[in-house]
């Protein structure tokens, strides 16, 4: 499988290591939801740095995953969107409407800040360019 889901304290780090097709993306979605329950995770980082393309289906399934995870009580942040991919998403005219961070490190910082009672929330927003919360 081209994905890994690892536990890091209260958080899960789900990484995609190669281009995924639609059915693999759906399976990834299901696996992450199952792991959230297994580990009682409060936050999830989804690392998409290795995704070559985020087209309408990819964005749609990621957005759904973030919404579903939120309903299960886990805050999710997407990290590692490549500049080219970001450009394509904007060109395609999509509103990804999820919290994002530059990389894994920033993603972890963000999750720590929101799960410990929004202490650093305000200052983080500017740094991370988040449009969630």
């Amino acid at each position: 499988m081209f994905v890994s889901i690892l536990q890091q304290g209260d958080f899960l780090i789900a990484s995609i290591h190669a281009a995924l097709d639609d059915s693999e993306l759906m399976r990834f979605q299901k696996d992450v939801m199952a792991e959230i329950a297994n580990h009682r995770a409060k936050g999830v980082i989804i690392d998409v740095a290795a995704l070559d393309v985020l087209d309408s289906f990819g964005s749609w399934s990621l957005r759904n995953l973030v919404h579903m995870a939120r309903l299960r009580g886990a805050t999710t942040v997407i990290v590692g969107i490549q500049p080219e991919v970001a450009f394509s998403i904007v060109e395609l005219g999509m509103e990804l409407d999820v919290t994002t961070a530059l990389d894994l490190e920033n993603g972890l910082e963000y999750l720590e800040s929101v799960t410990t009672g929004h202490r650093a929330g305000k200052s983080m927003l500017g740094v991370l360019g988040s449009h969630d919360t």
Binding site: A19, D21, D22, D52, V53, E84, F87, S88, E91, L92
Partner: peptide, 29 residues
């Protein structure tokens, strides 16, 4: 799986045609 193959091969052709990485990603998308 063919969708992934198609966009990857398409990206290679785009790069070969002189497109930048960003434009090649747009074409692949």
């Amino acid at each position: 799986a063919d969708v992934v193959v198609a966009r990857q091969r398409g990206r290679e052709v785009a790069v070969q045609a002189g497109f930048s990485a960003t434009e090649a990603t747009v074409i692949a998308t």
